[in-house]
Design a protein around this nucleic acid. Sequence first.
DNA 1: ACAGTACCAGACAGATCTGTCTAGTCTGGC
DNA 2: GCCAGACTAGACAGATCTGTCTGGTACTGT
Lengths: 191, 191
Amino acid sequence: MTGTGIEQRRDSPARGRVLGTATALFYAEGIHAVGIDRIIAEAGVAKATFYHHFPAKEELVCAYVREQSRIGRAAVATIDTADPRAALLAVFDQIADAAEFPGYRGCPFINAAAEYPDPASPVRQAIEEHRRWKRDLLVDLLRRDGAADPGRTADILTVLGDGLLVTSHLNKPPNLRRLVRDATTAVLNGG
Amino acid sequence: MTGTGIEQRRDSPARGRVLGTATALFYAEGIHAVGIDRIIAEAGVAKATFYHHFPAKEELVCAYVREQSRIGRAAVATIDTADPRAALLAVFDQIADAAEFPGYRGCPFINAAAEYPDPASPVRQAIEEHRRWKRDLLVDLLRRDGAADPGRTADILTVLGDGLLVTSHLNKPPNLRRLVRDATTAVLNGG
DNA sequence: ACAGTACCAGACAGATCTGTCTAGTCTGGC
DNA sequence: GCCAGACTAGACAGATCTGTCTGGTACTGT
């Protein structure tokens, strides 16, 4: 049996163009602020094709969140985890990388959650899944780094990460890269 | 001359009802998700009255942000600042207070910024003004507390505050109050 | 008595949004 | 040859959104 049906549907060029366009627009301008008409126009896709791949806008928003999650996981996957301490620092260095990127507009998950108040909504659950993944990653690295209480230190690192993502967007403090490194090191040593 | 014109307009009962309703709805459900029709219906105000006080929705959104700023400043104003160190801890304790409040949905300024991408927009400038006020507050208290580099420590405390506001909403870590206190103390002693 | 204003009720216009539907093209597998 | 499915173009319906306008009531200061 060849890869028909769902598999092909997920890989179709039109679907990819829609998801790519939506990812760029949703992140840059917000989700409620971008309509379907604009997405299909910029993706060069017919409306029927869009609704063929995504039964409703919310499905597209979920796919957007999962796409952002995929991008984040891919970035982390490039990190060598042989040395857990170095890997933890590298994870946080990536925040500084992202913040320097032109068009940086904060954390896509925090921003999306701001637009979806209901914690039970599929969008929020997709966000939660990503945050669970990230926390599990931190706990694993911290355990391997010999942290006394990996769970609690992961919570503190989560606070630090969220804070860095927000502050680097809304305040743009100077010496962000050093601030990230110092704060991370302080938590890991003093944890 | 009596307090006519702008003064009276700002204090009118209808305007207050609109702003109060909008503040509750915008915070709870997001800004783009709440329409004018719903606000005036729940505030019990005629449409003409609304547009009499707020020429456009964006004016109301700006007033909402300033109202949230007023609420935040009022909360801080209750703190005794004789002891700057105690005052700093009290400011961060208020984050834990807010996070325990039923209906807590994160920081209204961070959430609003997520919906207004243009940093030059009036809404974003109102947000920036609040964040400037908060940073100035921290710098002042830190200086009086004898911090070596009040500006830099204020940046770190801003990261911490933003992180706590976000994480306490999206992760709800256990022992939040102790986490807030420990993290703040660590920054103040180690920073 | 009068002007000004704040207010209410609700129709209305015009734009935009989501989502459906029709009608037809192109391509790959059988 | 034939058919299923991915695709395009675009009309259409119905809801909702912002903002305007009409018309009328009530209070307030002069």
